[in-house]
Amino acid sequence: MQLRYEIQEGDFVNAGKASSAVKGILKQLDVPAILIKRVVVALYEAEVNVVAHACRGEILVQIDSDMIHIVVQDSGPGIENIDRAMEEGFSTASKEVREMGFGAGMGLPNIKRNTDRMDISSQPGVGTRLELTNRLIV
């Protein structure tokens, strides 16, 4: 099963809609709740990151019988130093993002914690691509 969602900069009202849709599908597929939670927490943080930092982005989801593979890519400012961005507490978020309850420098570490595999590539001025892979069976 393949799914695609679009994300717009600053659209905090809709941030989380893709995660919500994926959660619904995984529930229908009878994936264990503990594994669903890992997927949707990672995806939700990734969605918020795009809304917070990028111009626009897209989410591509591939669901197989035992795995889920998610690509979140955006045409945003990119990340200058990925190692620093992975440090808990490091953030470049705006005041508006912080007022939404995010922007404390926990997003990428949260995503990594909740995925079996996370690959990130980024080019300043071009954008960022995040690939997430999780098992769907215990």
């Binding site: 927490v41 939700y44 943080e45 939404m100 309850g101 995010f102 404390a104 926990m106 997003g107 949260n110 914690r113």
Partner: peptide, 8 residues
């Protein structure tokens, strides 16, 4: 009030 914290 920090949602990233809640998500951990």
């Amino acid at each position: 009030d920090l949602m990233s914290d809640v998500l951990t």
